[in-house]
Amino acid sequence: MQKKLVDCFDVAGLYLKYESDKFTRKIYPKIHSAQKLDNRIEYVFTLLNGMDPREVRKKEYAFFQIFGRTLKIESDGIKKYVLTIYAESLAKEIKWNWSDIVGTCQHFKLPIYCGKNENNEHVAYDMVKNPHLLIAGETGSGKSTQVRSVLTTLIKTTTSSHLHLYLADLKRSEFHLFRRVEHVKAVCTKVSELKRVLAYLKKETECRGDLLEKYEVTHVDDLPEHERVPYIVLCIDEVALLKKEKDAMEIIEDISAIGRALGMFLILSMQRPDAKVLDGKLKVNLTVRMGFRCADLTNSRIVGTPGSEKIESSQGGRFLLKLEKLTEVQAPHLDDVNAKKELEPYKRDDVVPIEESIPLCPNNHTVSNCGRSPLTDEEEPPTPQFGLLEDE
């Protein structure tokens, strides 16, 4: 077993040379152990004094070339490394199962469940700490199913008083399942409807900014209990359709820039990456990317997941996750039928038109009702603390 690791050191150039008049010798990192465990092989080795640990990270590709894709390299950051080679590869398909994933998600404030990695481990993260998500991939790659899975998981892990969802589906094909869900404040199928929502959310950013300034805190989670506001997630399917809507894109970019502190987050998806849309501060602020199968290297680089162009068409639901580093993940499959069953307990009986639920000019939107549902005609507006926000 040790010989294979030595071959890897040799290919990667991870050695020091000792030269004398008679011969030249390669001195490799010291291998302390190599053992077979239940479903993996584990190597422990240390670098020689004078070897740069950054070289291991640079030459990490050599480990994958020699040992395959199912490995993990862990380090103390100085000399010691643990290389684990797993026997199992990524599952070809996994089912979205609430009882299976709830334990992974329950510790996060705003959990985004991704799927399973090549070590058969659940992969999830907290959107509050890693704001804004881009999901991209060709038709049939699993992108739409993943959006459905992400939203369903958010609904099941977070109460409607702590999470408000605003959904935009300009193709009118994806978000009908989420109508009447108590967390969902709007499902937009027209650009005019989305613009109405964006105007409302722009006012919301101003309102929440006033709250942070009033209480001299840097995040809405630090506000006093009586001023706490729900998280807001704006999810737009096929955001590339908005590239000609300059005003709309500016608001989306603003949310990407300041939304983290305000508890406002983006989930954007698109089939074909568009460099004009993913340009400037929007691309920079989309800190997490899910790159499903892309047409070519250019498209995968636009998404920020180079290598996703190599995903085969037979690998539905496979994607590269860019979080701390690129990780290959198998997304869970959640079909329409099961999604309906999971969402049914959260459905309301009534359907409120966007014109009623989202005021175009929210004159009642004051610091004291920030983040709460718009007032109905029967309710009296609360006493303003700073006066009304003026319409722009």
Rank of each mutant, 00 (worst) to 15 (best):
K129E: 15
F175R: 01
L194F: 08
V184S: 00
L177W: 10
K185Y: 00
N130I: 12
N130P: 12
R172H: 09
V197E: 10
E121S: 08
A136M: 06
D100A: 14
K171D: 05
T189F: 15
E193A: 04
L90P: 03
H162Q: 12
T152F: 06
T104F: 11
C114P: 02
K79W: 04
T84H: 02
L163R: 09
P131Q: 02
G115T: 13
R69K: 15
E93H: 13
A124T: 12
T158K: 04
K80I: 01
V147H: 03
K72R: 12
Y113M: 03
F175E: 00
S89D: 08
I78V: 14
T104Q: 05
S141R: 05
R172G: 05
G115F: 03
N97V: 05
A186W: 00
C188F: 05
K92G: 10
A136Y: 02
A136P: 09
H162E: 15
K129W: 12
L83H: 04
I135A: 00
D76Y: 09
S173P: 04
F175S: 01
L134N: 11
G115I: 03
Y125T: 08
Y81G: 00
E88N: 09
H176D: 12
G103W: 03
V82D: 01
L90F: 06
T152G: 01
Q146W: 01
W96M: 08
D76Q: 12
K92H: 06
K79D: 07
H176R: 11
A124L: 11
G137L: 10
D169Q: 08
I135M: 12
V197Y: 03
K190V: 14
I85Y: 00
R179C: 04
E118W: 15
I66V: 14
K95W: 12
L71F: 08
F178H: 07
R69I: 14
I78N: 09
E182Y: 07
V147A: 06
N120W: 13
K116S: 05
E182F: 10
I135Q: 02
F175Q: 01
T153R: 15
E138W: 01
L163Y: 06
V181G: 00
E193D: 14
F175V: 04
K171C: 06
R148F: 04
V187I: 08
I66Q: 05
T158Y: 03
